[in-house]
Every structure is written in structure tokens, then in C-alpha cells.
């Protein structure tokens, strides 16, 4: 089961650029929340702050409070501990090229020292089924490398890999932007099925995608959260003029 996320007064910087300005919002548990906005608006930075990936860049810095359930992730835990509870899917499929499909899915457990083979087998199968990839790869789980399958399959493999550690939150940073329409549809299907079990936050520049998959949508502009509301409200009756300009395509 997922947990909710409460963000208060979050600021982030890359070097001297202030990329995220005083963002506060409440992401509900077991729902899909979409974040939209023009490129460079801070939406990617925002999700990367939710699992402290932002700080892997030596020049990056973040301040503010992020609570995941009862846990203040910047105070009460190390980045590694947080990332074990939060799955992340990136913009481009990034399977480990030298590992088999099986090892890719099991990597989050194996590389953290989990050795029980029977449970690993179960988890790999379940995760691949959840990612709707099982039927396509079950015959060469250990034969093919993670990099040898198609782009759309690779991205679903990455989703399976993220699900294998049984996270409470799933962050997706434009997961379909590098994929063809068929693969995109598959990924959206998947998000739909997964939301009963996980809190999902998806960044997208594709407004139709947000409208299709998300219950809640936030609109970012120049590092600020302009509006955050039910998806239907955002797309039919936004309260802010800038949101309206963006979703109707009148925005630069």
C-alpha cells in the first residue's frame, strides 16, 4: 500500500539557479498525480527531490520539508533508505546493459544483499507480470541482456525493476517521452492498473496523458507550482489564467 506525501516550502537550486521556488502540496496515497508544465519549469526537479535524487548532482541543493507518511525524508533518513521505499522510472529506459532481464529486475534486492533465491524468483515473476512484460520475456529471462529488448520493453523492464523492491511510492519522470505510441499506451495501461497499490507521481509534458491517467494534476511554471487540483478541474475549469493559457496551447 502506498503512503501520502506532504511537501512544504520546498526550494531547490542547481548551482546558483533557483529551480524550485517554495513549493507546497499534498499528494494523496494510492492515486495518480500528474505534474505538467513547459520544459524547464521545475517539474522534474520536483520529483527528483521526492526521493533525494536531486542531490546526486554535486552542485544541486534542496531545502524544505517532504513528509512521506510519518517520515520526514530530509531529516529522519538517509537518501539510500528513502530510495529503497520509492521507485523511480526515468525519461529514457535505462536497464543495466550487462545484466540479464532477470538480474535487472532482481537488482534492487540482489545488490542490496538479498539472497533468498525462491523469493527472488517469485518477486521477479510478479514484477514482470505487473509490468505486463512477463509473457514477452519469460522464455529468456536469464539469456537476454536488459539492453537487447526493444525500447518499449526496456521501459517496462525498468518499471518492473522499480516495482520489485515493493516501494510505497512510484515516481515516473516522463516515462513515455522516448517511446512510440503503442508502447506509450501500454505504459499508461500499466499506470492505471498499479495505482490501487502505489502512490504514483508522473511528470509529463503531454497534457492528454495527464488527463488520461491522473486523478490530480499540478501545473508548474518557472519553478513555481501555479495550480494543483483535481485533473478534471484543471483541464475544464482552471482557476489561474496561466494554467488556462498553457492547457489551451496559448503559451509560448
Amino acid at each position: 500500500m502506498g503512503v501520502d506525501i506532504r511537501v512544504e516550502g520546498l526550494n531547490a537550486w542547481y548551482g546558483s539557479t533557483h529551480t524550485l521556488k517554495d513549493v507546497s502540496l499534498h499528494i494523496p496515497a494510492n492515486h495518480v498525480t500528474a505534474l505538467i508544465g513547459p520544459s524547464g519549469c521545475g517539474k522534474s526537479t520536483f520529483v527528483r527531490c521526492l526521493n533525494r535524487m536531486h542531490e546526486t548532482n554535486p552542485i544541486a541543493r534542496a531545502e524544505g520539508t517532504v513528509r512521506m507518511g510519518d517520515l520526514d525524508i530530509y531529516k529522519d533518513a538517509t537518501p539510500v533508505e528513502i530510495r529503497r521505499r520509492v521507485g523511480m522510472v526515468f525519461q529514457r529506459p535505462n536497464p543495466f546493459p550487462t545484466m540479464s532481464i532477470y538480474d535487472n529486475v532482481a537488482s534492487g534486492l540482489k545488490l542490496n544483499g538479498f539472497r533468498r533465491k525462491r523469493i527472488l524468483d517469485e518477486v521477479v515473476e510478479r514484477s514482470l507480470r505487473q509490468a505486463a512484460l512477463w509473457d514477452e520475456v519469460k522464455d529468456d529471462l536469464k539469456k537476454k541482456s536488459g539492453a537487447s529488448i526493444s525500447g518499449g520493453q526496456q521501459q517496462r523492464l525498468c518499471i518492473a525493476r522499480a516495482l520489485a523492491v515493493d516501494p510505497e511510492v512510484l515516481l515516473m519522470d516522463e516515462p513515455a517521452s522516448a517511446l512510440d505510441p503503442v508502447s506509450t499506451a501500454k505504459i499508461e495501461d500499466l499506470i492505471f492498473k498499479l495505482k490501487s497499490q502505489y502512490t504514483i507521481v508522473i511528470v509529463t509534458h503531454n497534457m492528454q496523458q495527464a488527463a488520461r491517467v491522473a486523478e490530480k494534476t499540478g501545473f508548474f511554471l518557472m519553478g513555481r507550482l501555479v495550480e494543483f487540483d483535481a485533473t478534471t478541474k484543471i483541464f475544464t475549469n482552471p482557476s489561474d489564467k496561466r494554467t488556462e493559457d498553457y492547457i489551451t496551447g496559448r503559451f509560448g
Binding site: E81, R84, R85, L109, N112, G113, F114, R116, I119, E122, V123, R126, R129, Q130, A164, V165, D166, K193, L194, S196, Q197
Partner: peptide, 18 residues
Amino acid sequence: ATPAEQGSSVIRSFLQKK
């Protein structure tokens, strides 16, 4: 969606204790 509750709780507790 198959939860496989048993396996999943083992994993969570393992990773949290790690």
C-alpha cells in the same frame, strides 16, 4: 493485480532493516 502479500512484506522488512 497479484499482491503476493507474503513475499512483499518480507522484502519491505528486509530493505527497511538493511
